[in-house]
Design a protein around this nucleic acid. Structure first.
Lengths: 340, 340
DNA sequence: TCTCGCTCAGGGAACGCTCCCCGAACTTGA
DNA sequence: TCAAGTTCGGGGAGCGTTCCCTGAGCGAGA
């Protein structure tokens, strides 16, 4: 028992054999107990449990993964450029937290990966292909994202938060067009005549669908659409609003494709001396917390982000458990506040 | 070559042996090449590289971790109750993304863990103690958090984003008191007489320090402090502002300990008919993006969240590389906008 | 020409776990 | 009392790496 060895033994985490020796049973039995097998006698079980507690035994994940070929980990891939939609968005926080919570509750490790560039996308691809995770939760609003298709090829379960182009990847998405129709109909009900829209970046399916909903609801009335392009950011909303006012000074309503842009639009309207809602009514989309605190408080389409995340996670957990899964479209509803 | 075996061979990822056989060398050599050892002849190297490429070989992380006892992963532990400071805060998004990006750039896997309850805290503890990660980046604003001390005992490198009570855990924090002093002095310079503050939850060191800075700056002038308790949320800011107006209708300035509460306060002021900044000046803290889009745009103390996260990550990477690390206090500066 | 030394490839043990398979012990029925 | 059946613990192979150690091969010096 020379000091070096003693110290090393101290440092080292106990293994299955050590626990088995302590409990006076075989390591097979310890393994069975640790993994909750039911074919083990209560007394042996107790013996093992006590030894585990006394030694502070924790199974070595690497060794376990090596033989089981499972990792109990899923990758949460956030596919969005640094300046993208999610960057300063409450969406990131809400979605990531809700999803993470649910995955942890199911005993899954969450490996967070950002796919912000081609380089990091390649990194994600090889990481996933290497089998370091059991499945992938893809958070991507970018319809043209090549990642879903690539990941689908790895034959690992993949679920996408937000619609994707890859046919084999089930997704959970909002009824974007329906929400937009709700918003526009509400403005029509309020007697608005000239209703403009600020869209999101049109490479995002969410943005395209919301625009389609706007056009559709307006089309029934024979009104001409009035469209300005935004980027789902406050600044782009402010900018698009300036554009709209320049193009059509007589407009009396705006549907912004998300709340951040609506908030930006409010700012421009304030600067241009327009009163909201007296002169111009504004509707947003998403119902982020800030929407209730803007001046005036924002009427908006409430999209249940956290629920959507939860649904996506449950879908993924189902796939991991061998069940099949269908894409889901979540409904949304209008929240009327002061801006209309 | 019966079909079942063929199929299984197809499904299975190639191992070191397979690559070695293909290249006509030993698995030792393949291992050396894959790990970039320099004691390998160029021709063997090329042979192996080609085999690796042809077979699409990716090392099995579990097997590698098992023998090397390293994981190349770090845990990013977000310690905050569900309704806590970070929940709908841009902080979460900004910090998590910035830290994640930097860790990925350094080739580290990011395992995201939420520590929202005692149960999940225990989970984090055992996970980290089990040696599944090489180090921990703790994101905690809760000074009394027991987690830092617990994690420090695992003898793994731990760095905290935000000050902690554990003496052995290096942290990166803001100069909270200094920032608060900046804010109050600015209000004094503007000729404000009755300056109130809305604090954060006082179990957070950030909140305590900002309050201390407020008291300190005010103390020099002989003015009485006027304090209302908030919770770092919009709603609590709105509520605290109502309280303050009831207590002291003549107040002409408010320093809110973060921007979200300042935004809430703006709302209350608007509802009560106060004009900002004419009747009441408002200063926030953090300079989140929304601060520039409130009505009126918020004067605030700019705290470099992303830089702070980056600094924390670099500190952790240093520790992982065997260097020592010192805690860092980041400076901050005042951004003057319309609300003062 | 022989030997010493050096470089560098290969063989194989070890890492800690799971799970298959065998056999001991115990129960049950005739 | 004995055979058959059932339950449940133990032995040990194998998962895919790394890395130590051995020894082959070759160049240089005597």
């Amino acid at each position: 028992m020379e000091p070096g060895a003693a110290k090393r033994a101290e440092m080292k985490r106990p293994t299955l054999d050590v626990v088995a020796a302590r409990a006076g049973v075989s390591k097979s039995s310890v393994s069975r107990v640790v993994n909750g097998a039911h074919t083990v006698a209560p007394e042996i079980r107790d013996l093992v449990m006590r030894a585990v507690r006394e030694l502070g035994y924790v199974p070595n994940a690497a060794a376990r993964n090596l033989v089981t070929r499972r990792t109990d980990a899923v990758a949460m891939v956030v596919s969005d450029p640094p300046q993208g939609v999610l960057s300063d968005d409450p969406l990131f926080s809400t979605v990531v937290r809700a999803a993470s919570r649910e995955l942890e509750a199911a005993g899954k490790q969450v490996v967070l990966m950002l796919a912000e560039s081609d380089r990091s996308r390649a990194r994600v691809e090889s990481y996933v292909a290497a089998g370091h995770v059991d499945g992938v939760l893809l958070i991507s609003l970018h319809g043209a994202d090549p990642l879903p298709a690539v990941l689908a090829r790895t034959s690992l379960p993949v679920v996408s938060f937000g619609r994707t182009a890859a046919p084999t990847v089930p997704y959970v998405d909002l009824d974007n067009a329906g929400g937009a129709r709700l918003a526009v109909r509400h403005l029509l009900d309020r007697g608005r005549q000239r209703i403009a829209t600020v869209t999101g970046p049109l490479d995002l399916s969410d943005a395209r669908e919301r625009l389609a909903g706007y056009r559709e609801a307006l089309g029934h009335t024979g009104r001409r659409p009035l469209v300005a392009l935004g980027a789902f950011t406050r600044m782009s909303g402010a900018e698009a609003m300036r554009q709209l006012l320049a193009d059509e000074p007589t407009l009396d309503a705006v549907f912004a494709a998300n709340d951040l842009m609506a908030i930006g639009a409010l700012r421009t309207l304030r600067e241009s001396g327009r009163r909201v809602p007296d002169d111009v009514a504004v509707v947003g989309f998403d119902d982020i917390e800030a929407a209730a605190y803007s001046a005036p408080a924002l009427t908006t389409v409430c999209s249940p982000m956290a629920d959507q995340a939860l649904t996506a996670v449950r879908l993924l957990l189902g796939l991991l458990a061998g069940r099949t899964g269908e894409s889901v479209i979540m409904p949304n509803e209008l929240v009327v506040r002061e801006s209309t």
